[in-house]
Amino acid sequence: MKIKGPKEFWAGLMFIAFGLFFLAWALANYQMGSAVRMGPAYFPSVLGGLLAVLGAFVLIDAFVEEGPKVSRFHFRPLIMILLGCLAFAYTLKPLGLVGATALLVFIGAFGGNEFKLKEVAILYFVLVIFSVLVFVKGLTLPFSIWPAFME
């Protein structure tokens, strides 16, 4: 058997995996109840089963109909963007807005096609000043501005 529609193939597998996971987890951990008094497992397991069945149909489609290829995954933007956001979130408390934004902007900018240090540095200064004024001073979000060791 030849996979004719790679997008359908992987999408089908993804849906089956999600469906079976929710179905199995619900059945294993929560009470099913009855149709009259539905337990916490009832709705999710029905939906999970339905999702797995639909996924199977999508998968079958992949062997029947020609479809476009899955275009290449670009790992650099993907990883840099996600990494930048996480770095921001987990350093906001210790490093303050000034430090955390630096990590986000520089790591994030590294995920793009060009990286010009000077330009990114200027962008960072503008963004930090703007964020401090709008979010901390204006909207009074409880963020510290400077890193904890500097205060």
Binding site: I81, G84, C85, F88, A89, T101, L104, V105, G108, A109, G112, N113, E114, E119, V120, L123, L127, S131, F135, L141, F143
Partner: peptide
């Protein structure tokens, strides 16, 4: 240019 835009968007979304 987008290379200026998207880090700004990232900052606002994360905050």
């Amino acid at each position: 240019p987008y290379r200026i835009l998207y880090p700004s968007i990232l900052v606002f979304m994360s905050i």
